[in-house]
Design a binder for these strands. Structure first.
Lengths: 194, 194
DNA sequence: GAATAAAATTGACGTAGGTCAAAAAAAATG
DNA sequence: CATTTTTTTTGACCTACGTCAATTTTATTC
């Protein structure tokens, strides 16, 4: 399972096989059953999680008890309560497995060691943070500038592999709309096509 | 003016005075007049911008011609079309000075050299990317979970120094509401207090 | 594979926040 | 400092999307 991570890392930095081995060995493989939580509010998130198999969803529950999806992750994506992880303070998010899954987890302290020890490893974490930031900027801009329907269409085009694997109610709340409204958008589309 | 940057950097990494000098010397000081643009759609953003004096606003214009504010920056903040800068492809945002301002600009190629040359500099850029990502996560979560009025109240509390310096129409669009609606929120509050 | 639970759909109705246009206030400019 | 431009406010009306409740469909479990 660790090959996936090796390949992923190789997209961003060039490592010798020893370096690559060292990095990947720092991760622990864990199996997570569907519906199992890996993060919960008030518990500090201790690892960075790389999905090698399965799917996850992170979400927050507001004062009215409504769930709002913050992120999805499938193979080759990271998922965490990032604020909790980097500042090592209590989480505000739930993260739950949507399928039986396998994660590679990197411990917070272990990550600090890796970054301190190696300039290349530091570069790797800098790059994934920058890419993450650029991604979230695009998301914020798109959300500010588009209607519910356009946001859904855009999600279909941008993340076709996610659509089949995440429940509608989770997708609706990720896109900032009610599950009923998303259902109507989908239905309208289906009618238009027939 | 460069002391501000020196102090800023010192919050995240410990540098010798030579290192500090080298980093800060890599930035160019530029004066920007109010209403002047430093980034425009279709032009690639060539620098990372650190505000030492003044205020800026980045925004996108949608298909209906409406402006949506993406970010504000005052002293000690960075501002850029981050997607344009890190991928060196054409920008989609406008960035304009809200006041007569002074920037420290770091050229893209110069930044790459700095990161390649020094592990510490690499760490610095990693940290600011991670902090930026954590910030945007908090923003996305807050926006998903709160009403227009709550978003305004939160902005007042979180960024009191910005409030006096940014126009209402820009703030309204940053918070994802119309300028008229923001005006009503403010007015309601004022009445409540009297 | 029947029973139960979870997710998605549908209809009726409600509301947060938008739009348009005009007026007032504030800021910029010569 | 009077004029022009930009920004904010106000009122009347509108709509995209939400809520609630009931039903249907799909998944899960024993």
């Amino acid at each position: 399972m660790k090959n996936l991570l090796t390949d992923y890392v190789a997209k961003f930095i060039t490592l010798t096989s020893e370096e690559s081995e060292e990095l990947v060995k720092s991760f622990n493989e864990v199996k997570i059953k569907k519906k199992q939580f890996i993060t919960q509010p008030n518990f500090t998130s201790r690892h960075r999680n790389f999905v090698v198999k399965g799917a996850f969803r992170s979400y927050v529950v507001d004062d009215k008890g409504q769930e709002h999806t913050v992120q999805f992750a499938i193979e080759n994506w990271w998922i965490s309560d990032f604020n909790s992880f980097i500042y090592q303070h209590p989480a505000t998010l739930f993260i739950v497995a949507l399928e039986d899954s396998t994660l590679l987890q990197l411990d917070y302290e272990k990550e600090q060691e890796l970054k301190k020890k190696s300039h290349k490893f530091e570069t790797f974490f800098r790059i994934i943070a920058e890419k993450g930031l650029a991604f979230e900027h695009r998301r914020i801009i798109f959300n500010l500038t588009h209607s519910a329907e356009a946001r859904y269409e855009n999600f279909l085009l941008s993340f076709p592999h996610f659509v089949q694997r995440v429940p509608q109610y989770a997708l609706a709340s990720y896109l900032g709309m009610s599950v009923e409204f998303l259902s109507r958008i989908r239905n309208k589309k289906a009618i238009r096509k027939s």
